[in-house]
């Protein structure tokens, strides 16, 4: 339960930053915070207090090993998700540069030519 509350706290912080701030760069930072809250959640799901690295050495009992090792799968998932997040971040940065060239502002409330 603590896991969910902690995650929702960080997630809410990022969402607030994304919605309430008008500066494009601050919005992007909010986006990154949301992303990292979910990555943190995934890591904590697989974490075990005083756990060992999930590498099975020869002669070790697999059943005992599975009781003490941390779960390696979320770490692999988070690596992938960080790379995807990097791609999204790069695209957002490229967009913000192009938007600045066209509108001469980073204020999202002044970027409103689309209507209807």
């Amino acid at each position: 339960m603590l896991l969910y509350i902690l995650n929702m706290l960080v997630f809410g912080l990022g969402l607030y930053c994304l919605i309430a701030k008008r500066h494009i760069i601050k919005k992007i930072i909010g986006m990154v915070i949301i992303e990292y809250s979910v990555n943190l959640f995934l890591i904590l799901v697989g974490y075990r207090i005083n756990g060992i690295a999930p590498i099975l050495s020869p002669g070790e009992n697999p059943i005992v090993f599975s009781q003490v090792a941390v779960d390696p799968l979320p770490q692999a998932l988070v690596l992938t998700s960080i790379v995807i997040g990097l791609g999204t971040l790069a695209l957002m940065a490229a967009y913000s540069i192009k938007l600045y060239e066209k509108y001469r502002t980073f204020d999202m409330s002044e970027i409103n030519r689309l209507k209807g």
Partner: peptide, 10 residues
């Protein structure tokens, strides 16, 4: 990369 397209894309 026109202004409306960038706004919609963002």
């Amino acid at each position: 990369v026109e202004s409306e397209e960038l706004e919609a894309g963002f």
